[in-house]
Design a protein around this nucleic acid. Structure first.
Lengths: 346, 346
DNA sequence: GCCAATACGGTAATCGGTTACAGGACCCTG
DNA sequence: CAGGGTCCTGTAACCGATTACCGTATTGGC
C-alpha cells in the first residue's frame, strides 16, 4: 500500500500530507477542520492522501496550539461498581459526546494524594476537572478556584463555600419520599441508619427523614437513629442493634443501599421476613437492588445523570463565562419493590 | 502575593519563570528536570520563582517535545458491572504508580465506536492502550499492531492471533477447580451454565469443566450444559430449565457470578434449599457474592491484578523493545462459601 | 601573565498542529 | 486594457516545552 506509516511506524504529520498532496500545511489544516476557502479539487486531493495514510491529527499538538487539551480530569475516592462507577459512566458518556476524553484518577480517599492529583491535572493535561466526593477542605477548593482552574464538585462531601460549582442529589427530598412511603404503609416506629455525621448527604437525608416524621405527627426517637459508614457491614451491625431493642422498629430507612443490604442480612439471620416483619428502604438504587431478594425498595439517585450534568457544567465553565455560585440539584425518585409493606398487625 | 497567575488566570510558562529569575528557558528546564550543570545559586533562584508562581510544566507541550504523552488509553464495553470496575481500578492504580494517567473510553459494545476510539487514542493523545474485552476482529487487531501502536488486550473475548500481547485469567484451571470441588463433595450430576459460545472465557471454562468430569470418570451429559450470556436472567432461565429435568442436577457450576445468582433465585423459587438440595458455584467473586445469602462459592478472579498487569505489560511495550506473542495468564482460586455442600442422600 | 580546561548558561531548532496575513490567479467591469 | 474583486493557497509566527550546540567566565597550572 502506501509507504509513509505502514512500514516505519511513524505516524504521518500534516507536513507529510501536504507534501504528498502538493499543497501547504495551511491547506491541509483547512481541509481537516472543514473550513471554507479550499477548491473542491484541492480538497479531494488532500482528502485522498489523508485517507490513504490513515492520518489522524495529533491531539497534543492541536491542544498546544489551541490552548485546549480535549481532556477532562475526573478524581474519585474509589473506582467501584456501585455508586462511583455509575457516575463515572455518565461522565464518560457525556464527555464522549463532546469529543472530550476523561482522564481518570483514584485518590483512595487520601487527601494529599488528591491535592497532588489536582496539581497534576492542572499541568495543562486537562482543561478542567470533576471532583467526586472531594477530600479537600473548603479553603483548598477556594484556592483552587482562585487559580482559575475550571472544576466542578460532584456530590460534595462537606458543605461548600459559595461560588464553587457543584452538582448534587436532592438528598432531603429523597429521604422524605422514602420516609413518607413507610408512613403511608402504616409504620410508626421507623429507624434510620445514617451515613457518617457531618457529610452533606448524611445530614440532609436525616433532615428529610425528620421532616417526614414531623409532618406525620410522629415523635422522633433518638434510639432509632444509628450512624453507619455507607458500607454494608455497618448496616448489618445497625440492623442487629435495632432488632435487639426492647421495642424494635417495624421499618428501617438506610441512607444507602449497601447499608440496607446489611440490614436485610441482619433480619434474615433473625429469621424475620422482609417485608412482613421488617420493611427496609435504601438509597441509591444500585444494580444490586433488583438482584437481591427481596428486591430492595430504594430512592433512585440519578447517578449517571449526575456525571453527565457535571460534565456539561464543566464544559460551560471551560468554554467561557464564569458562573458565580452555580449549583445543580438533581431529583431522585422512590422505587418501590418488594422490601417494603405494611407492618404486621400486633 | 505574586502577580503572574493569581490575577489574570494565565498559567506561568517556562519563559515567564526564566524572565523573572533572570535566566534562560534552558536553565529553567534544567532545574525542573534535575539535570546537572546549574550553579547552586542559579538553581535556587529558579526554584524560588517556580514555587512562588506555582509553576507546573505543561504536559501537552512536554509530550510534543518528547513524543510521549503520559497517557494510557483504556477502552471497555461498560463501566458499571463490577467486573469492569475492578479491572479498571487496578489499571488506574498501576498507571498512577508510573506517573501516567488513564484516559477512559466506554464503547458500549459498539464495534464501530470502539474502532473509532482507538483511532482517537492514537491521535497522539495516548502512548498506548489497554483494550478490555475487545469488540474487534483479529484482523483489525493485527492491523492495529501493524501500525505500531502499543496496546495490550485484557481478557480477550475471542481467541487472538499470535503476536498480540494479552493478559487473561486462567479460565481452564479455575473451572476445573470449581468442578473438582463439587466432585469431591460427592456430586455426580453436575450442570454447567456457560457463557456465550465462542468466547475464550466460555470455551476454556467448558474445557476445564469437562476435564474435571473426565478425570473423575463422570460421563458428561449434554443436557446438563446450557448456554447463558453472563447476565443474571439467563442464569435464572437456565436454573429453571435444569430443575425441570426428569433427573435434575445436584449441583450447578455457572460460568460467572451473575448467572449463579440467577440460578440461586430459581432454586429459591422452587422452595429448594441451597446447598442441601442444590449446590451452586460461580465465577468472578463479585462483591455481591458475599452479600447474597447463602454466600456464593465461586472462583475468585484476580481482576484488579489483571488491570495492573495489563498496564505493566503495556509500559514495557511503550518503553521499548517489542515482544512477540507475549501472553500472561493470571491464576484465580476457589473461594468456598455457603452455597456448596454434599448432595442430599437419596 | 598566558593558555587550556571546565563549568555555566544562552540561542535557536524542534515537536505537530493553527491561523493571521500576504500574495497570486482569475474574472468581470467600464 | 487597467483596476478592483473574489477565490484560493502559501508563508511564517506562534503554542510551551526539550535539548544540541555554542559562547563566555572562571579557574588553575606553568
Amino acid at each position: 500500500m502506501s509507504s509513509i506509516e505502514e512500514g516505519n511506524g511513524r505516524r504521518p504529520t500534516m507536513r507529510d500530507i501536504a507534501r504528498l498532496a502538493g499543497v501547504s500545511v495551511a491547506t491541509v489544516s483547512r481541509v481537516i477542520n472543514n473550513r471554507a476557502g479550499v477548491a473542491p479539487e484541492t480538497r479531494d486531493a488532500v482528502l485522498e492522501q489523508l485517507r490513504a495514510h490513515h492520518f489522524t491529527t495529533n491531539r497534543g499538538a492541536r491542544g498546544l496550539s489551541l490552548g485546549r487539551t480535549g481532556f477532562v480530569g475526573f478524581t474519585m475516592p474509589f473506582i467501584r461498581a456501585d455508586y462511583f462507577a455509575s457516575i463515572l459512566a455518565g461522565a464518560v458518556e457525556a464527555a464522549y459526546e463532546r469529543d472530550m476524553r476523561v482522564a481518570l484518577c483514584a485518590t483512595h480517599s487520601e487527601h494529599d494524594r488528591e491535592v497532588s492529583l489536582l496539581e497534576q491535572l492542572m499541568d495543562g493535561a486537562t482543561d478542567g476537572a470533576i471532583i467526586l466526593l472531594p477530600e479537600e477542605t473548603s479553603d483548598e477548593l477556594d484556592r483552587l478556584r482562585a487559580r482559575r482552574y475550571p472544576f466542578v464538585v460532584a456530590d460534595p462531601r462537606l458543605s461548600l463555600p459559595p461560588g464553587i460549582p457543584a452538582v448534587s442529589a436532592a438528598h432531603r427530598a429523597g429521604a422524605k419520599a422514602a420516609t413518607d412511603h413507610l408512613l403511608e404503609l402504616g409504620h410508626r416506629r421507623i429507624a434510620h441508619v445514617s451515613g457518617p455525621r457531618g457529610w452533606v448527604a448524611t445530614e440532609e437525608r436525616i433532615e428529610g427523614f425528620n421532616a417526614a416524621l414531623a409532618a406525620a405527627g410522629v415523635l422522633p426517637s433518638p434510639e432509632l437513629v444509628l450512624e453507619g459508614d455507607f458500607e454494608s457491614p455497618s448496616g448489618y451491625a445497625a440492623g442487629r442493634a435495632l432488632l435487639d431493642l426492647r421495642a424494635p422498629p417495624t421499618a428501617v430507612f438506610a441512607s444507602n443501599d449497601n447499608m440496607a443490604f446489611g440490614a436485610l442480612q441482619a433480619a434474615r439471620e433473625r429469621g424475620l421476613s422482609v417485608p412482613d416483619d421488617l420493611s427496609v428502604v435504601g438509597f441509591d438504587d444500585a444494580d444490586l437492588a433488583t438482584i437481591v431478594s427481596p428486591a430492595l425498595t430504594t430512592v433512585r439517585q440519578p447517578l449517571a445523570e449526575l456525571g453527565r450534568t457535571s460534565v456539561s457544567l464543566l464544559m460551560r465553565l471551560i468554554e467561557g463565562r464564569r458562573f458565580e455560585g452555580l449549583r445543580v440539584e438533581l431529583a431522585g425518585r422512590l422505587v418501590v419493590r418488594e422490601s417494603t409493606g405494611p407492618p404486621r398487625l400486633r
